[in-house]
Write a protein that binds this DNA or RNA. Sequence first.
DNA 1: GTGAAAGCGCTAACAC
DNA 2: GTGTTAGCGCTTTCAC
Lengths: 352, 352
Amino acid sequence: MRTRLHRLSQKITIHDIARELNLTSATVSRALNDHPRISTETKDRVQAKASQLKYKRNKIASSLRSGKSHTIGVIIPSAQMNFFGSVVHGIENTASSMGYSIILYQSEESSVLEKKAIETFLSARVDGILASIAKETTDFSHYQELKKRNVPLVFFDRNNDDLNVPSVVINDFKGAFDATEHLIQKGYTRIAHVSGAKHLKTFSDRLSGYIAALKKNNVEFNESFIYQGNLSIESGKAAVDYFFNLPVIPDAVFAVEDFTALGVMKGLKERKINVPSAFGVIGFANESFGEHISPSLSSVDQQTVQMGKEAFGLLMDMINFKNGELEIAVKEKIVLEPLLFFRESSAGKING
Amino acid sequence: MRTRLHRLSQKITIHDIARELNLTSATVSRALNDHPRISTETKDRVQAKASQLKYKRNKIASSLRSGKSHTIGVIIPSAQMNFFGSVVHGIENTASSMGYSIILYQSEESSVLEKKAIETFLSARVDGILASIAKETTDFSHYQELKKRNVPLVFFDRNNDDLNVPSVVINDFKGAFDATEHLIQKGYTRIAHVSGAKHLKTFSDRLSGYIAALKKNNVEFNESFIYQGNLSIESGKAAVDYFFNLPVIPDAVFAVEDFTALGVMKGLKERKINVPSAFGVIGFANESFGEHISPSLSSVDQQTVQMGKEAFGLLMDMINFKNGELEIAVKEKIVLEPLLFFRESSAGKING
DNA sequence: GTGAAAGCGCTAACAC
DNA sequence: GTGTTAGCGCTTTCAC
C-alpha cells in the first residue's frame, strides 16, 4: 500500500489541484499558464497547491493539445568534432534561455542516419529543425520534404544554396582572402594553397578568396601552387613534398583547415625549414591545438558559438512567422565574419 | 483551397488510414506496431496506405497514452568541452540505435541550470536521465528527488558516491598509478605531481594512484614534490617555477590533466630543459592537441565514447527493471580501465 | 483477427 | 473571472 501511494504520488494532475481547491481543471490550467483573466489570488492559491503537491506539468499532454512541442531537432555530423560541439553549445544555451529543448542527432556524415533523424523529429513534432548537412548527402529530398510540410528549417555551416533554405554560414571567401593577404603583408611572396574537396562550396570559396587576395595585391597567381588535399595531416605533408619539387618553391602556405596546416608544418619540420622565418603557414578553423603547438599556428576562427546562436534565432523567426499564419517568407542567409588569429607561424619572413 | 488541402495533408492520422481501408483505428495502430494478432495481409495493406499518405506517427500522442516517451535527458557541463562532446557522441549513437532520442542540456557548471534541466526533463516525462554533476553543485536534493520519484538516473564521469546512484566512471587511481609507474620504468627517479582541487574525488584518486605507484616501486615519496594546481596551463608553468626552486629538483612530472602537462612543458621549454631526455612529462585526458605538439605528450585516455555507451546501457537496464514492476535494485558502478598513450614526452631519460 | 469504447492530461472555444 | 465541453491522436482493455 505504501508503494502504491508512492507510485500514485508521481501522477499529480491539474485535476488533483482543481479538486483540492474547488476549481475546474480549466481554471487551474489557466492559472498555471498565467492567463490574464485569472485573479491574482487564484493564481497564488494554485501555485501554492501545485508546489505543495509537487505537481509537474505534463508537457506531452500540453504539446498534444496545443500543437506546439517547444522542442527543436538538431542534426550535426558528430558531437565528437570540436566545431560542432561548440555550435551546439551556442544553440542549446540560446534555446534553453527561450524555453526550448533540443533533441540532438548525429548523422555520422551518413545520409541514411540523416533521414532517420528527420523521421524522428517529424514524429516528435518538433517546432523546427537546425541541421548541418552530412558530407555524404547528395540527394536532398528529405530536406525538400520538410519545406513541403512547412517545417521550419535552418542550415548552419554546411548548406546547399539550391534548396533555398535560410542558413548561417561563415564568410569563407573573406576568411581566406584575409589570411592570404596577411601572408603577403608579412613579406611572403610565393604563396601556395592546400585545398579541400572542390565540389564543396566551403572549400571552393576559400580557394576563390585565396586567388582574389593574390590578384588584388598583384602577386602572381600560379596554378601549380594549388595542391588538392583532403582535410588531413597527411595531405598537408604530401603538399609539402609536392611543393618542394616544383621548379619555383613557395615560401608560404594558406591551408584550407588546421589539420592540413599542421601536416604542412610537420612536413616542413622534417625538411628542417624554419617557420615562420623561411616559410609562413596559416590555417582555418582555429582548432584548439593551434595555439599550443610550436610554433603556434595562425588561423581563421569560425565563430562557432555565435553561429549556433544566430541559427537558433533565425529558426525562431521562422517559427513565429508560421504561427502568424504567414507563408514562410524568411529567405535569409546570415554570413558571419571570420576572426583572424595571428600567431607565430605567420610572423614574417626573414629574407635572404 | 489548394493551401487548405495542403495544410491538412500534414495531419494524417491513423483514423484516415482506417477510413480508407475500412478498418478501425485500433487495428491500424496494432498493425503499425506489429502486433502479433494482426494478419500479415492487413499489416501490409496498412503499411502501404501509410506510406502512400505519408503518414508520420504522432509520438506525442503515443507517449501520452502509453506513458513511455522513448526519450532520455542528458546533462553535461558544456558541449564545448571536448571530453563531454565525445561522451555525448557515445550516448547518442547507442541511444538512437535502440530507438531512443536524447534531449541535451548544459549545466554550465551551475546548480541552478542543473535544476532547471531536471525540471524540464520531468515535465517532458523522459524515461531516464544521464548526468554529469556540475562542479558548483553541493546540494544534491534535486537528484535525490529523482530517486524518490523513481526516475531512472545514471551518473557518468562526475558522480557522488553518497547518493547511491549507478554510475560510469574511469579508474582514476589506476590511470595515475600506471602513468607514474611508466615514468619510473623509463628511468626517471624524482617524480613530481601537479594536482587538481583535492576535494574532487577524481583528482584525489589520481593523487593516491601517484603515491601508490611510488611506494610500490620503492621510490621515495616527497611531500614537497606535490604542487597544488587548478587544471590550467598557468598552473603547469607555476609548478615548474616551484619545482626548480626546491633543494632537490624533480626529473619528471605526472600532471593531473593535459593542459597542466602542457603548461609544464612550456615552463620547461622556457628553462631550456629538454623533454624527454632531461625531464619526463605525462598528462591525463588524451586531449587532441597532445599528439600534435612537440614533443608529443604522453597521456591517459579516459575512454569517453565507451563511457557514453556504458552509461546508456546502464540506464536501459534501470528502465527495463522499472517496467518489470521491480524495485530499482540496480546499484551498479562501472569502472572503465584507462588507456595509456605513450608518446615522446616520456620516452626516457638519458642520464648524466 | 478485428471492433467498440474509454481515456492519457492538457488546452481552448464558448458560455455567462 | 470561472465553468462546460470537446477533443488533440494514440493505445488498450474488453469484447466476440
